[in-house]
């Protein structure tokens, strides 16, 4: 690494570096404008849109407006509850199943694999209609239940854990059985502690996916009390007549911030977790 950094600066290298810097600036521009606009007064937004630093900061006003129109804490809280529940149930359901498929003599393993492959192919968009009809009949719309239930099963989770468990040595499990553990004990005390990398990666993947999901919440929730962050932002936009971009950007900033902060704090794990979908092939 140090040897590389001392590499001579050639014209080619300088050019490559410039391209990188310019592209990065383009990619980051939306964030800069989001922050800057969240601090601008309405009049300034209309007159000087290219200046990044607000001439008189209106952060407080804009944030106050954002908080007054829609209950931001409630949105974030809903996001946490829904993502937390989904993740917990997904892991509890998927881990034992993946273990059974990977390490036990399983009668219907082939059928199960076929189901998993089918599940990997079918997104929520394809199953949404009947589930919606059923929830409507059962009067389950506008509830945490409706938001969480369809995602209680993650075939991707099963698939990911399955791959991971297969790489655990059989002898480890044999040793645990000889030590007198039940199968559930093997899962809890041997498999799970050794599967943290996979579980962490899956957690990040799952939370990011469901925190950002708009499609399903949009379908089953019309009551603001159960709105998740993306849906809440839609409600906010609907309530916002005209172009009050200052307040809108403030709201956007509040809603984007938690996940972005988490990403910046645990970048490496995030990148790993999200690219874990790269194993899907």
């Amino acid at each position: 690494m140090t040897a590389l950094q001392l590499a001579p600066i050639t014209p080619g290298r300088a050019l490559r570096f410039c391209v990188l810097v310019l592209t990065a600036a383009l990619f980051l521009a939306p964030y800069l404008f989001m922050i800057s606009t969240a601090g601008k007064a309405q009049s300034e937004i209309f007159t000087s849109s290219l200046s990044l630093i607000p001439s008189e900061p209106h952060f407080l006003e804009n944030f106050a407006k954002a908080f007054s129109r829609v209950s931001m804490p409630l949105l974030l809280w809903n996001g946490v509850i829904v993502c937390g529940l989904i993740l917990a149930i997904q892991v509890v359901i998927a881990v034992p199943c993946a273990y059974a498929l990977a390490k036990l003599k399983f009668p219907a393993a082939r059928l199960m694999m076929a189901l998993i492959m089918l599940g990997l192919l079918v997104p929520i968009h394809a199953t949404a209609l009947p589930i919606y009809v059923a929830f409507d009949r059962m009067a389950l719309l506008n509830s945490y239940m409706a938001l969480v239930a369809p995602f209680s099963i993650s075939v991707f989770g099963i698939f990911l854990f399955l791959q991971f468990f297969r790489s655990l040595p059989d002898d480890l499990i044999h040793a645990a059985r000889l030590d007198g553990m039940s199968e559930l004990g093997v899962v809890m005390r041997v498999v799970v502690p050794n599967a943290w990398p996979a579980i962490t990666a899956f957690s990040i993947f799952s939370v990011v996916a469901h925190w950002n999901d708009l499609y399903w919440p949009l379908i089953v929730v019309s009551n603001q009390a159960y709105a998740t962050p993306p849906l809440g932002l839609l409600f906010f936009r609907a309530a916002e007549a005209g172009d009050d971009y200052g307040a809108l950007m403030a709201a956007t900033l509040i809603i984007t911030l938690p996940l972005l902060a988490a990403f910046l704090l645990a970048q490496k794990r995030f990148v790993e977790g999200i690219t874990m979908t790269g194993l899907k092939g």
Partner: peptide, 18 residues
Amino acid sequence: RTAFFLPVASLLVAMATV
């Protein structure tokens, strides 16, 4: 890497607004 990956980790509905 962070700069280019940031949009992937961002809430798309929010960034669409931006």
